[in-house]
Nucleic acid binder design. Structure first.
Lengths: 183, 183
DNA sequence: GAATTCATGTAAATGGTTACATGATTAG
DNA sequence: CTAATCATGTAACCATTTACATGAATTC
């Protein structure tokens, strides 16, 4: 039995701790964003196939909480998936498509695209930096434990940060380079 | 009238020069990959809506070539799009999902993921580097001309290369760091 | 002689988003 | 008092891939 990659991502979250669909969606944001309308059906399929169990917590005023927990069967499928090779990443970035055609307009279009991008990257990096600092402070030893979930967080956040910073630097350099040509 | 982003990407390619669907698919690879089964319908819609014209070149032994060319109407829509703000990039990368769960298996899973990733990045960077060097040699002055398509190529390839290299470095550093913890 | 390139497309299926339905609680 | 958060899900639509159909020309 093979599942799609969102399903494995959801299983990975449930393996760490039992969670509601709402919480799964929030946690997915850090490495594999998806809308809740995609996740809720995934969770009910997991239950139907015996890969997760549900515990319902009654609430008043809002829908009952459904807490999903990965079963041993679910875990075994997830671990099996980890032995396979990941597909090459899929990236869809309108910024690149715009850059590709920007020559047809004027230089200001190129510089606007670059400055806007840089702002976006900076804002993003700022948020992540806080998270990263906190991570390093709170769990300095646990990170080194390969069986700790902190290692993954350290790797994932650290990688993201470096790529954000590198792209930011690139934007800046390109802006100064272009400015130097047109003065 | 607003179109989806593949459509704008295709228009951007046709703006540079008239092309067949086959060639459009090849060129899309550098910034917005898509399968031909997605592109052919896009092209026929462009024609129906007067955004592109077609010239049929008869061939024997293979399907007739259909050369698409962007119309002024198409160009105006594309330029209008360039004044808008791009959506945030969409990334789906199984490698990250695997890294997120790798703690549940063992350290060797983490290191295998990192080494495989590094190999992939290196291979990719190698190909791009050749392209980049050629670009810098062949059109050293044209790149500085903002109305030249070479500027876009320079930006796009340069950016990609830097990000590939940065991620490669990160993989390497993480591998040595992890190795130092477990010796 | 085998693999890749050239060249078009359609049909079916999967993946993913938007819109809809519903509304109390909590934080600023 | 306003915005965000909590909490579930379904239906319709759009985006993208896979599989199918076809086969000569070229490169290795």
């Amino acid at each position: 039995m093979a599942f799609n990659t969102v399903t494995y991502s959801v299983m990975g979250i449930l393996l760490r701790a039992p969670r509601t669909g709402y919480d799964v969606v929030k946690e997915l944001k850090s490495f594999r964003p998806a809308k809740s309308s995609q996740i809720y059906p995934v969770l009910s399929k997991l239950e139907k196939q015996g890969l997760a169990t549900v515990q319902v917590m009654h609430q008043s005023g809002r829908p009952d909480k459904k807490i999903y927990q990965l079963t041993d069967l679910g875990k075994s499928h997830l671990l099996e998936w980890l032995d396979t090779h990941p597909e090459p990443p899929v990236v869809r970035d309108d910024f690149l498509s715009m850059l590709f055609s920007a020559w047809a307009k004027d230089v200001s279009t190129v510089t606007r695209l670059l400055t806007d991008r840089r702002r976006m990257l900076d804002k993003h990096a700022e948020d992540l930096n806080a998270k990263y600092a906190q991570l390093l402070q709170t769990f300095p030893t646990k990170i080194k434990d390969p069986a700790s979930t902190q290692l993954s967080a350290y790797l994932l956040v650290g990688r993201r940060l470096r790529l954000l910073e590198e792209e930011g630097k690139w934007c800046e350099e390109m802006l100064t380079q272009i400015a130097s040509w047109h003065n």
